[in-house]
Write a protein that binds this DNA or RNA. Structure first.
Lengths: 126, 126
DNA sequence: CTGTATCCCATTGGATACTG
DNA sequence: CAGTATCCAATGGGATACAG
């Protein structure tokens, strides 16, 4: 029973670690800018400045910050071309593209329910 | 051409309005707490206090704030039982449940890629 | 129990300037 | 062009108190 209990405790600790990691990833990813960048990248390869232009309303700072985060989590890949001026390109990795598929679904959902939401808002705001 | 142009302009204005609404909804929904609440509700009906207990780490304030937002957008329904003490229950609406399905996918994605992300992080942090 | 309001600190995020 | 750093305003979000 001693070893069994130890093993059970170990498994629980392991699960807790995985859960807290999952939580962390969820927090990283479940934010407006990260999702918009992922959606904008799609299956293309874009330069920093192209992303800044295409992700409506994002600031220089938020873009770099979120790109670093995506890179750190292995969702986007950063390629530096050692030219002058420098040319840096970003593209989604396999896991990044997998996530993108789910973001696509959220976008679809949004457009499908536009009118439901609009009228719900109208009702609520009165 | 005049009427055609006018019609085209009208359509564009319409699209811009829809886009900005979609943007707004996306911003509302693409945040950690909203998604965690949706995921926790699932297809159940939960009281305010049950939600506060089950959504790990959420504060009183964030919970009410996000519940109001979900209600306003017609994603969650609020039922007040006029007892004393009051009993208020929340449940997802049809559109809310549809969104929940996509959140489920994000959760699946997270767990599927835990190890990829963990090792990507390790590589990056060195 | 649920909800609103307030205070207050921590974090977010924009604007700008500077480096390679 | 891409990235970092800094400053500062705005928002987020926790703790607490109070009302219904």
């Amino acid at each position: 029973m001693g070893s069994k209990q130890a093993s059970a405790l170990y498994d629980e600790a392991d699960l807790r670690r995985a859960d807290s990691l999952a939580r962390e990833i969820f927090s990283d990813v479940a934010n407006k800018w990260a999702l918009l960048i992922i959606e904008t990248l799609g299956d293309r390869t874009l330069r920093f400045s192209e992303l800044r232009d295409q992700v409506e309303g994002i600031s220089h700072k938020m873009l770099t910050q979120n790109l670093r985060m995506l890179e750190r989590n292995g969702l986007a890949e950063r390629t530096v071309h050692p030219t002058v001026p420098p040319r840096v390109e970003y593209t989604l990795t396999g896991p990044g593209r997998a996530l993108r598929a789910t973001v696509d679904l959220i976008c679809d959902w949004t457009h499908e329910h536009l009118s439901h939401i609009e009228s719900a808002r109208h009702r609520f705001d009165t």
